[in-house]
Design a binder for these strands. Sequence first.
DNA 1: TAGAGATGGTTTCATCATTAAACCAAGAAT
DNA 2: ATTCTTGGTTTAATGATGAAACCATCTCTA
Lengths: 154, 154
Amino acid sequence: MRRTDLGGANCPIARSLDEIGDWWTLMIVRDAFRGARRFSEFQRGLGLAKNILSVRLRKMLDDGILELVPAAGGGAHREYQLTDKGLRLRVILVAIRQWGEDHLFEAGEPMMVMVGKEDGQPIGRLRLTSKDGRSIDPWDIDVKDGVRGTEDVG
Amino acid sequence: MRRTDLGGANCPIARSLDEIGDWWTLMIVRDAFRGARRFSEFQRGLGLAKNILSVRLRKMLDDGILELVPAAGGGAHREYQLTDKGLRLRVILVAIRQWGEDHLFEAGEPMMVMVGKEDGQPIGRLRLTSKDGRSIDPWDIDVKDGVRGTEDVG
DNA sequence: TAGAGATGGTTTCATCATTAAACCAAGAAT
DNA sequence: ATTCTTGGTTTAATGATGAAACCATCTCTA
């Protein structure tokens, strides 16, 4: 009777949501991208209960999304840092962000925006494309059984 | 003491997760993209409790992600259909899917793949880009206060 | 057209997850 | 040496989720 387990599905969406599909994990990742590295920074930034944060951080360490590293400033403590796997969640956050900007804000309402570090300009919109780069509409996609890599061989 | 409300934040990620950040909503959207249109189709496809599905579907109708339309086959009942707002969640699902494919599957393990309806070829990878189309790495992004549209004016 | 089954839920109750608050050990600051 | 901060854990209450039973309406078949 425990919460449904989607981790064994052969659908990558199901398996991903089983790992990062809860209320807090992606918010923690967001704050990590904003520079949060310590327990108290996450806790203050998100306003979630400490025991919940504790459980989440431990699970994210187990899952290899975060890792503990020696303090950046040379302190004796250790800090939470996104792994490469965690850094790759950025695309998901950007997709979520752009959808929210489009559908959850009124015109003129203030919002946080993402900008490229280099030019300071807002980043471009994500586009669904075919292999050769042409745009695809959301409804022009099918799902079928497969194995990654096979379609790249021939 | 109710669950934390992120709906009022000025961060689009927080606001989005408040609406679609629970365990089931994106799975329901996934099945809708696969062609599910009726209560029993969602219920069988996902294996979730009927009362939970009931609450979720109603909320998704309220949020304008789904709408009820006359049955496609001319039957007397009504069916659930993705709105445009719902269809735009596809990018998020693709981002989640590609991350899962990269980090949650072993080599050679069978998985569902997304293909373009037109050419039957797996869709291309999502890329983070600057406004002018150049690729950006996940760590080369900052977040700042802003208002949508202002940066497009000058 | 009567009966049987499928559909689309609602209700009830048990269990799991989240929350707030209190507590505590170890490290950092004074 | 003492006080404050950090990074948690524990406890108890409440909210969300799950399984199963129940029910009114639609739909199919004889």
